[in-house]
Design a protein around this nucleic acid. Sequence first.
DNA 1: TTGAAAGCGATACCAA
DNA 2: TTGGTATCGCTTTCAA
Lengths: 352, 352
Amino acid sequence: MATLQDIADRLGISRATVSRALNDFPEVGAKTKAKVRSVAQELGYTPNLTARKLISGKSGMIALVAQGEDWNTVFDLSPGSFLGTLNQAFDDHDLDLVMRLATDRDKTNLYARLAQRSFVDCIVINSPMVEDERISALLKTGAKFVVHGRDAQHEKYAYYDIDNYGAFKQATSYLLDLGHKNIAVFVHNEDHAYARRRLEGIRDAVSSRSAESSIAVYKDDASTHFSYTIAKEALSAKTPASAVICVDGVSQALGVYRAARERGLEIGRDVSVIAHDDVLKRWDATKFAPSLTVVRRPVVDACAYLVRAVEGIIEGKPVEELQFIDTAEFIVRGSTGVYVDSGVQSTAINPA
Amino acid sequence: MATLQDIADRLGISRATVSRALNDFPEVGAKTKAKVRSVAQELGYTPNLTARKLISGKSGMIALVAQGEDWNTVFDLSPGSFLGTLNQAFDDHDLDLVMRLATDRDKTNLYARLAQRSFVDCIVINSPMVEDERISALLKTGAKFVVHGRDAQHEKYAYYDIDNYGAFKQATSYLLDLGHKNIAVFVHNEDHAYARRRLEGIRDAVSSRSAESSIAVYKDDASTHFSYTIAKEALSAKTPASAVICVDGVSQALGVYRAARERGLEIGRDVSVIAHDDVLKRWDATKFAPSLTVVRRPVVDACAYLVRAVEGIIEGKPVEELQFIDTAEFIVRGSTGVYVDSGVQSTAINPA
DNA sequence: TTGAAAGCGATACCAA
DNA sequence: TTGGTATCGCTTTCAA
């Protein structure tokens, strides 16, 4: 529990000098610095972040606040490996990322407390809803925050998002080009801003074509064994889907693969599948058989942008300079192929 | 950004009185309190936790620090629903739980910084190793911490643990009583203290019997599709296992069920399975077919104990009073039955 | 290059 | 019941 004063007493100098020495101020002489550092080491000194925060306003701690009843819910949307990368990115900039679960009870209250008066320098929230009250609350209190994703209601805040609309429009166009006419769309919750935008992209792609193609949206409550239940439905409908778009993530594709297998349908030939790639370690899109065509968020870039936005917010930059919309990659693999009439065998354009 | 002083100025009283009023001290009169509260409300006052922490030493924040490269690794050991319950328990005691991922780079350094000098009042770590350097580091710095689990090397710290040894000894005895002689044991990492203790319980149960029963331990690196690979091995060995104990969790049992099904073996009759129940929402032991016999940690109790230990540590109680070892329930369900000779059909003692 | 001293915003003790 | 004041540990002018 050594303090600056302890070091100062030991060396017979003032605590101001000790502070400057430890913070590597240029005016302090090399030998003074060395002496101070060695005593600091010896006493096991570590700066008291609380005192530092009180005077300088900075603690170096960032909070990621996730909304949900338990962490499983959160992780369904934002997988652990992403959070690991994010953690790393903050680490590299000497920022400590802590995570806080906000249950529905807290809702806006917690955010205000955390950001306005608490120890963290900035808070990060993710997966906003189309109309997100957390963002409203944070804006009202003048808190420092960054959003991973973007709602549809507010404008003046820092965010990083991908072009969900464009990416899913492109993916859908690709399916239409392959000749698919009945496309099933699986979605957990349309009130998530990202889901809404992806659906818009899908719908616009379809309606921009003159051909009589159509989509059927299936709600998927995330507890139905990786969308298996709705996949069975979609594949056995009166006009069965020849292609499925999984809006939320690759885990949904597991159910489609299983349902297709059970009906004797071959993925990539009889049924095409596209999913959003959440970069889950356990379900790697490239390990699917056949490998899965995906729309992918560039994870490392995303993390770098988020860190940049957080640093910008801390420095007080205008939010207009901290709004990033990235393009998502569309990666064609083996799970998509040209449409073939049901019952008719045909060669697919899959890679071997 | 109103401060105590702002409220005091407004009312023409001292900031000491305002502080007492807001903290509901008995000596402050009812009407003074009312006036103070109304002005506080009006100005949107919220206490500055940083200042409070500096003087009182308390912020009301607790950090759960988990070791692992990413959160997936962590969640494999400590599932999200448990953390949700824990979060709730701290909430109920007006404590904020934040989570921090510690990668191997940080290791002991982070713990020292976080606990000794930082904003949190206490830190919680979980799943300690048999010899855990985090505990060493925390003890050395005199930090306030609580362990979920218990290592085998240190003594004087607060913890909550279940009787892993006793529970798995009981479970193994049960299998032996049913006549099983070749028992396979699946384990991720024997260096985890809980795994070590469970294995000891299993071994002691076996060696306390005169009969010639034996166990075979299979290492399971958690990436092998829910232990399917080692399950195939265990069931097709020269002397195949008639019973499997999954040390780490119910997800391992998925692989056993699959491997058994593939070999035409019936779980609960040809192969008995016991797992530790990690209370994963997605893989509920009662939803297995047949339902899974488990050793179970009482989750709600565990959380309550952990909160109690944290509060005790904050109040400065001696750690000896904050060491809890709970019994784990052994719940017999349909996945365990009397041993039958291979090839011989027999009625099992399963519930219908 | 260094030291003295003024805060940061609360809490807590001692007087009144 | 209230006010004045020291304090928590640090950063940051202002002087020397």
